[in-house]
Design a protein around this nucleic acid. Structure first.
Lengths: 250, 250
DNA sequence: CGTCCCCTTGAGCAGAATCAAGCCTAGTGG
DNA sequence: CCACTAGGCTTGATTCTGCTCAAGGGGACG
């Protein structure tokens, strides 16, 4: 769980581009693409467990996830931590470090991860470029919307809906990325990380998952989610607002 | 608690402009201001308890709070609701209704409220205008950051820190707006609304507040917060990251 | 003066946390 | 090749934080 120092500069010629990145997605012919490309600096790579951005750091970073899973979390002095967002391919990371000059969150690689770096020092030039600002705004709004759903699932629901919502919303995101089947998907988060995302203890998460398995809704085994009853799952998870899939406005 | 239909069109010549609005704050001489003004359509007004935006509504709305308090919340079918953000003068409301075409949250007036409307139909033109996109992005990022702090206070803390954090962060925001004293401020939220913001029950909120009063930290009486021990309050409330006041980058 | 609403307080309950132990797998070193 | 260790998952027993239910009190308003 060491802090990555030089991941930024590890270029990997095998990475062709951000297939999933909403910055460029479905925009092959857009005039914005060359602009975006001109701010891309390098590719990076981190290993499972590495802390890619450390809360409190004054270093600005900006990248899009290319492959793998990450978590964005806040730590408390008490040792608790709250996972605020799960990072998947395509996610844009580090805007706050550019805007506020310091990292409000830590970012940790859950699996091995590859990402595409942007020139954080030229963020304001980048975000001010015609067309780009709106793309960033849209991704931001999308992420905020997901965070609010988590907030609601944690604050206004019991552990059962909380966990169900976490699974259902990850499933939805992965489906859109083509990284999940209807029937299930690989969930590389540890029970501890799931607990940190749900504001629960690992012990209790386990009990909830066992209950959901016994009810033949979902089961988690060997880091794989098997969805036995998708409708049932979504029914438990339902947070009003999930009815609006808010497709990207790009 | 009726839904406001025509609040949008109630112009009030007494409202001179958005004194607190970060869209225009400290920017009297900026070339962006005339652009911003050209998208302002009217002033609005709503009364305590009015629902200004109703979750699920397909009507796009865009306004900045001019005076008064509001809450932005998500409702669940179970009848629970989660307050996601407390709206204060200067806050920019409704971006999601413009971007996603539907309201993911309800917005309710806590006190009587006045606000400045923008032309929601021309949102994409507005946000694409040079200089404006970045201003909106910054406000968005700022709000998201506050929501994440709430998420952390709710998910990774006990009720005591949760409530302390709510009070301390409102205090900080109000101080910046010049709407609070060091020693206290008016808090027009009902216990029920505080509970909805904290993911707690009114009964328990009350008990926590009583404990905080008995410890001579803060007391809430007649909708007024009296801060008896500011350092103590901030110490309880501490979420790492509150150390970075992330001043507006405008 | 009565009604309504919200705040306040108490008693009892339950959902989730804590504590603690056993298990399984992967990794390490003899 | 096997013994040993470490970390994470699983489970049970117990504790406690926060919820539910219920009843009393006080201010606003008709």
């Amino acid at each position: 769980m060491s802090v990555v120092q030089n991941a930024t500069r590890v270029a990997d010629p095998r990475i062709p581009g951000c297939r999933h990145c909403p910055l460029t997605l479905n925009s092959a012919s857009s005039p914005d693409v060359p602009v975006i490309e001109s701010f891309r600096t390098s590719h990076g790579r981190a290993w499972s467990g590495d802390v890619i951005i450390e809360q409190g750091s004054r270093r600005s970073r900006l990248f899009t996830m290319f492959s793998g899973w990450g978590i964005k979390y806040k730590s408390l002095d008490s040792g608790e931590r709250q996972v605020v967002h799960v990072l998947l391919p395509g996610d844009f990371v580090g805007i706050e470090t550019c805007m506020f000059g310091a990292a409000e969150y830590s970012v940790q690689a859950v699996t091995d991860v590859t990402f595409c770096n942007f020139d954080a020092d030229r963020f304001s030039e980048f975000s001010g470029a015609p067309g780009i600002g709106r793309r960033i705004m849209t991704m931001q709004a999308h992420e905020t919307s997901m965070i609010c759903e988590r907030l609601t699932a944690i604050g206004a629901s019991d552990a059962r809906r909380n966990i169900a919502h976490l699974i259902a919303s990850l499933h939805l995101r992965l489906l859109k990325l083509g990284l999940a089947q209807e029937r299930g998907f690989r969930l590389p988060l540890s029970i501890q990380q799931i607990a940190d995302a749900g504001g629960l203890t690992p012990v209790h998460v386990h009990r909830v998952l066992r209950a959901l398995r016994e009810e033949r809704i979902v089961s988690l085994d060997c880091r794989k989610i098997e969805i036995m009853d998708l409708d049932g799952l979504r029914d438990i998870a339902r947070v009003v607002g999930m009815d609006f899939p808010h497709d990207m406005m790009l």
